[in-house]
Design a protein around this nucleic acid. Structure first.
Lengths: 212, 212
DNA sequence: GTTTTTCTTTGACAACTGTCCAAGATTCTT
DNA sequence: AAGAATCTTGGACAGTTGTCAAAGAAAAAC
């Protein structure tokens, strides 16, 4: 085989790989939506296939098994959800603006992507029982933590202060608020969500400067 | 039927009811342990029966269906877990003592009852998908919130200060820390747990007085 | 001690699960 | 256009699930 033939084969191989990957992510997205709708416990492969344009058999052509498929779906979630606040940070000029836009986006995605978020919490929890999810969950959780930290540390900077708690504590606090808001949003308890929203700026300030 | 006969029937009826209820809670406890071990998604009725001293058929004699059984198990969880810190509050004489003993018990139950706690989070999450769990979950969550608030407000009192955040925010923060500690504990990541423990007193102080 | 009620077991059922495979359809190569 | 590689389908499989009912065991009532 000559160099030319080899590079040609390479091109073909790459194209096949690309196509293969494209269909993989396509199916992973269908999986993501199914999981978001039904939750981990009630999601079956046939249900996933019905949310795609293929039949159930094809899933084992692109994925080794169910776990492989779900892990790919989780990675898909990450790609969607983990850079959400970056543009808010990037183009904020003052602390109030940053804080207000963060709060706005916080509750915007809460409502807009509610089912996706409940899926995330479902899978994070599943990792407490199923070791094989842990690594991916911990990685995504780390990215979420970093994302929150970029916001809060930038906010502190703009206020010429410093964060009042560690990166982990800051994340855990805001994530806890989000989780609770999600529960009450899905329950239809609008007042509770509203009061969480009203209080969020104070919490942010609590996390950034104590008594400056 | 005379009054005597009636009261006798009543006694018999009551005894039967008591026995019935006793067996119900017995089976609910077995369910609780099975759920704690396997998680909601993988818990089957036959598995539950194997963790009891009965066969699987008996479950439908005492419970209408699987959901009925699981909800009873959740209520059982509440009975175990929701008054844990009350004695700490009751016999604390100074703020440091209260804080230290709270932290100690916090991480004690984290390790001791780890599987039970992961079950709680699993079910709370399940309620995001399954409406029929919501009411019970919200009720238990409320009790947990009140339990935490008793600790923090008492701590504030002993320090002659006031809480720096609302009841909901305080709960969400400490619960978030607990959730994260649980994840890392089950992962075997002892250092992370240790650093969460080291930081917890500061977080408590952050929640109680800012710059007094 | 016999009858009646209560409890428990066992096995069956239909539906559903993840997995695999043979056959057909499609696409690409030459 | 023919052949080869790739993709997709639909059905079969063994195992599991929640549910139920008939039959047997145990307890209670008389």
């Amino acid at each position: 085989m000559t160099d030319v033939a080899e590079s040609k084969q390479d091109r073909i191989a790459r194209r096949q790989v690309d196509k293969f990957d494209a269909r993989r992510t396509e199916l992973a997205v269908a999986t993501l939506h199914t999981l978001a709708e039904l939750g981990y416990a009630r999601t079956s492969l046939r249900e996933i296939a019905q949310n795609s344009e293929f039949s159930h058999g094809v899933l084992h052509y692109y994925f080794a098994d169910k776990r492989d498929l779900i892990i790919e779906a989780v990675r898909q979630y990450e790609r969607v959800c983990v850079t959400r606040y970056d543009e808010v940070v990037a183009h904020a000029t003052g602390p109030q603006q940053l804080r207000d836009e963060f709060v706005a986006m916080f509750f915007d995605t809460l409502v807009e992507d509610a089912t996706l978020h409940r899926l995330w919490y479902d899978l994070r929890n599943q990792s407490l029982f199923d070791e094989s999810f842990r690594a991916d969950v911990l990685e995504i959780d780390g990215h979420r933590e970093a994302m929150v930290w970029r916001v809060i540390s930038r906010y502190a900077e703009l206020r010429e202060g410093v964060p009042a708690a560690s990166q982990g504590t800051v994340y855990v606090t805001l994530d806890g608020i989000f989780q609770r808001a999600l529960l009450h949003h899905l329950t239809g308890n609008a007042e509770t969500v509203a009061s969480l929203r009203a209080e969020l700026p104070d919490v942010i300030d609590l996390l950034v400067t104590n008594g400056a």
